[in-house]
Design a protein around this nucleic acid. Structure first.
Lengths: 141, 141
DNA sequence: GTGTATAGTAAGCAATGTATATAATAATCA
DNA sequence: TGATTATTATATACATTGCTTACTATACAC
């Protein structure tokens, strides 16, 4: 029941990073920005696949894509081989937004990691990646 | 613009830990549980002070306390020296809940940290604590 | 062909957080 | 003292992220 709990710490950092991001006044929310980044890395991906990558429900992703489509940053193109499915593609307008997001992510990252050595960052990433894996698997415990 | 971003990773882990916690079917939400734990560690604390510890707005905390008070786990006692303020205290009924929360936190922690060495956990805690400090201070950058 | 699985969406809701405003009280200072 | 300012808690209204459940349309498998 210590207050210096790793879950509490993670929760706080996540909130603080979001707060920091919001100072940027970028028009897209953090998760929208993230979805946009992922689309740019996997153009043509289907919504189910992207939802799985982000580990959120398809409907949750659908809403993010709705917004990005409304803002004319992402386009749903019908899949020629499966009439149920869409491929997600960037619009030409997406490029500047992606650049701004990139800069903003880097700014927040720098602020968060100020004063940490490269080794410390590496160690943290390694530990966090393991935690992610542990929590993703549906083992008991 | 890498997808293996520390912010993304933190976001995911936090979501996965929440999901894991929710499997417990404990009647209080994660933040309610956390607030209860903090009250147990600082009985008599005022709401502003607790909100500051949790780094959330006073109104956000007020709602958490409302719920805990409704569930008869926390009591607002008028501060004898300041008629605007309340001290937060556990009710007698809180003890069993705290025990359950403790067990649940430990379960999630174990699942998340499975396979990590003590050194890895230490390193992660150290890095995360530094990040927390960096993000809490209102420096520019 | 019939039954089952999959892709996407709709509706409705919950948790967490915010900004802004207000009431009551306390503290400061002229 | 009395006026101004600050602090404590709360009300209202809202946004974001996430969920469950249910539905339509299409694909696949037997």
């Amino acid at each position: 029941m210590q207050v210096n709990n790793i879950g509490f710490l993670l929760t706080d950092i996540k909130r603080l990073m979001r707060r920091e991001y919001l100072k940027s006044k970028l028009p897209m929310t953090p998760m929208q920005a993230r979805a946009l980044v992922y689309v740019s890395r996997c153009e043509g991906i289907r919504q189910v696949a992207l939802a799985e990558m982000l580990e959120i429900q398809p409907i949750t992703l659908a809403r993010l894509i709705d917004q990005l489509a409304l803002d004319n940053l992402v386009e749903r193109r019908p899949d020629p081989k499966d009439r149920r499915a869409y491929g997600l593609y960037l619009t030409p307008e997406a490029a500047p937004s992606l650049k701004e997001i990139d800069i903003e992510i880097e700014r927040v990252r720098k602020k968060a990691l100020q004063g940490l050595t490269e080794e410390q960052v590496e160690a943290a990433m390694e530990a966090l990646t393991l935690m992610h894996t542990n929590l993703s698997t549906d083992s008991p415990l």
